[in-house]
Amino acid sequence: MLRLENVRFRYSGSDTTYDFSMQVAAGEITCISGRSGSGKSTLLDLIAGFLKPVDGSLTWRDINFTQLPPDKRPVTTVFQQHNLFEHRDAIDNVVVGINPKIPKKGRDAELAESVLASVGLQDFIHTRVNLLSGGQQQRVAIARAILRDSGVILLDEPFSALDQQTRADMLHLVRTLATEKARAVIMVTHDLRDCEAIADSHYEIEHGQLHKRVV
């Protein structure tokens, strides 16, 4: 279970104080919506460790990770864009998730290959990612998230630029990932149809706080 308990944050020079409390169980998908500038990305940055809360705690399976740096947290983020190193091929982009030395052979490389195959990219393992379509690129990012084996996956509007069919395929992939690998998924989206399609719970950010909505 991922728990946020009164995680408070305030940007210097701003009047708004964010105060987030929520919980997401393993295998569950939670959607976050809200108006532009309401604090959706701030929430993800706080969980991922790019911003440091002034107060409150973040725990995963009852272990507090509030003070840990981003790479030591049980968290993987998939952004809307710029998820990949465009000058590298698909396998490099996946294997870097578990080994920054990017080995070309050995166990890590084999694992990366099998994960890429599991998301349907077995024919594109050695293709430079800038030659892949938008949907395929997001599959590579998700493959890396699968390989990293982090308990929490943050999706920051990752499918908003994709066409309807690819989007549906990607949502299905996320659902499978959450259920089969028992990941807690938090997905920021502007599109309530995405919420309806896969979310187990839905929060809306208003005035710096999370409000639970009925799915």
């Binding site: 991922a48 740096p69 790479d71 030591k72 983020t77 952004f79 710029h82 870097v96």
Partner: peptide
């Protein structure tokens, strides 16, 4: 360099040299 790329390299735990090779050098190549 897109801020997402900077965040990504941090969350992947790349050190300064690895970050330079992965995002900074390509951005000026």
């Amino acid at each position: 360099i897109p801020v997402e790329q900077r965040k990504l390299t941090r969350s992947l735990g790349l050190n300064a040299w690895q970050r330079f090779k992965m995002i900074e050098l390509p951005s000026v190549s």
